[in-house]
Structures are given as structure tokens and as C-alpha cells.
């Protein structure tokens, strides 16, 4: 049988990517499928499985704690993604100007992103320690804003705020890096042209900088959204009382009455939500 060159090339191509497809299939597709499969079973610790249909999903969707976790996750996502992007953008604009020691400052800004999570978390916990922490010392003893000491991380109502703040602080350098690399490639002529058209600094930002940054910002927010929807260690280490969906899943799967089938169903729902979110985002915002 004679194959055209294009057909042969495509066959060859498939052969080249076959190993990676195999590895990805084994490491990613199989666990996802197995997870979906598990979510229809009552899994005993002994490994016995009992098919229970959609019972896990029914239980999940009638669980008030699940909706609580979902709301927490949305707040966490919005807070961290928007926060770190805006701070990253502001810092990038600042660092794009020329001033003495700029290179040193640029390097220092990256530190939170490079520091190991666990050491930074301990630092933050010490800052917010209710008895010895610098935060309470400032607020209560020095500035006298509050008359009583609070454990911001311990209190379930304020812990989410601290966790969001932590994530913004830790991850804005990434946004900054991506944004500034784009900023530096914007042609100066465009600004000059805009200035001739009568645009002030704000006008130049809105009409030149923002449109140029659109896709970088869009991609950045998409990536951060995916990462943060699945973020576990930052939240759990700093404040295990903040129940975002991954932590809710962890408690269901690994503590108390271990319920792997139920935990699998949470992951499936989370996966589905994420997939939908990405689909619309890619279609509407990134317009791919």
C-alpha cells in the first residue's frame, strides 16, 4: 500500500509521541479514570468495594459542609488570583521605571516566591501568634487600635483572610515576573504615538499597556486559578481550619472515618468544575 508523504509523516509523528502518550496515560489519565470509577463505590479499608451508584454524589450534594467549602474556595480563588495579579502588575509597572539599585530590588522582590513554604509558614505563624506575635504587639500595645489580642490564624473567621494575604504575598513575584517580561517588549513608539494623540499617563496605561498585557494577564490568571483550586500545602500548613475543597477532601479521605469513595467523588466534582471553568475561560477570555 502506498502512503502519501503526509500520511507517513503523521504515522512517524505518532510513533515519536507514543512513549510520552503512554507515560502521561499511565500517570495522569489512569488515576483520573480510576478516581471516577472509585467514586461509585463504598471503599472499605480492607480494599473491598461495594457498588453504590450515585450515593456518594447524593451525600456530597446534600452536605452543608461541602457548600461551605465551595464558598470558601471561591473566596480564596477570587482573593488570591485578583490580589496577586494586581499587586504583581503594580510592582511590574514600578520596576519598569529606572531608578538606582533597580536590579537589587528586582532580585529581592522574588524572595517570597523562592522561599520554602514550610519555613515561611512558621514565620507567618509567629507574626500572628496571639501572645508573642508582632502583629498583636503593634495593634494592641503600640497603636492601641484594639483592646484585646486575637489569634487571626486560629479564629476560623479571620483565618481565610490571612491565608489569602499569605498567598498573594508568596505568589505575586510570579505575576510580576511574567508581566514585566511583557512590559519590556512593548514598543516605545506606541507610547509616543499615544502621547501625541493626547493621552496622559492613565490613558497610555489603558490604551497601550493593558491591551498589550491582555493575554499575559489572562494566561496568568488561568494558571493561578488552576493551581489555587488545587492548592493544599500553603493553606493546610498555615491554617488547617480553612476548609477549601482540597482540604475538605483531605479530611474526608484521610481523617476520621476514612471514606475513599466519598473523597473520590469530591475530587471528581472538583475536577469537573475546574474543567468547565477552564473551557469557558479559554473560549471567552483567551479566545483560543
Amino acid at each position: 500500500m502506498d502512503l502519501s508523504i503526509a500520511q507517513r509523516e503523521s504515522r512517524l509523528g505518532w510513533r515519536f509521541i507514543a512513549p510520552s502518550v503512554g507515560v502521561i496515560g499511565l500517570l495522569i489519565i489512569y488515576p483520573i479514570l480510576y478516581n471516577i470509577y472509585l467514586s461509585f463505590f463504598d471503599v472499605k479499608l480492607t480494599g473491598d468495594k461495594l457498588f453504590i451508584g450515585l450515593a456518594n454524589y447524593q451525600r456530597l450534594l446534600s452536605d452543608a459542609a461541602f457548600y461551605g467549602a465551595a464558598i470558601t474556595t471561591v473566596l480564596y480563588l477570587v482573593g488570591t488570583v485578583v490580589g496577586s495579579t494586581i499587586i504583581g502588575l503594580m510592582v511590574a509597572l514600578l520596576m519598569n521605571m529606572t531608578f538606582p539599585f533597580r536590579n537589587l530590588v528586582r532580585t529581592l522582590i522574588l524572595l517570597p516566591y523562592f522561599a520554602p513554604v514550610i519555613s515561611v509558614v512558621f514565620g507567618w505563624q509567629f507574626i500572628f501568634d496571639p501572645v508573642n506575635g508582632i502583629y498583636n504587639h503593634l495593634v494592641v500595645d503600640v497603636l492601641k487600635i484594639s483592646s484585646s489580642r486575637h489569634s487571626l490564624i486560629g479564629n476560623p473567621n479571620s483565618a481565610l483572610g490571612v491565608v489569602i494575604l499569605f498567598d498573594i504575598w508568596k505568589h505575586f513575584p510570579l505575576s510580576y515576573m511574567l508581566i514585566i517580561s511583557k512590559l519590556q517588549s512593548i514598543n516605545k513608539d506606541q507610547y509616543e504615538a499615544a502621547a501625541m494623540d493626547g493621552c496622559g499617563p492613565i490613558g497610555r496605561f489603558v490604551h497601550v499597556t493593558l491591551p498589550e498585557l491582555y493575554f499575559v494577564l489572562g494566561t496568568l490568571m488561568l494558571l493561578r486559578m488552576i493551581w489555587n483550586l488545587n492548592k493544599f500545602e500553603d493553606v493546610f500548613l498555615l491554617a488547617p481550619n480553612v476548609e477549601t475543597l482540597p482540604i475538605f477532601t483531605y479530611y474526608a479521605a484521610f481523617t476520621g472515618i476514612i471514606d475513599q469513595g466519598f473523597a473520590a467523588s469530591i475530587s471528581v466534582v472538583q475536577f469537573g468544575v475546574l474543567a468547565l471553568l477552564i473551557y469557558f475561560y479559554v473560549k471567552k477570555v483567551l479566545k483560543w
Binding site: P130, V131, N132, R149, S151, I153, G154, N155
Partner: peptide, 18 residues
């Protein structure tokens, strides 16, 4: 108790006379 959830680590407050 000292404010917020506590575990044994807070024994340091005792060593500090608090």
C-alpha cells in the same frame, strides 16, 4: 486560654511568665 486554638506548644507562654 490564650486567644485562639492552642496545643502544647503554648507552654512557652508559661516559661515566659504569661
Amino acid at each position: 486560654n490564650p486567644p485562639g486554638p492552642q496545643n502544647w506548644r503554648a507552654r512557652d507562654y508559661y516559661l515566659q511568665g504569661k
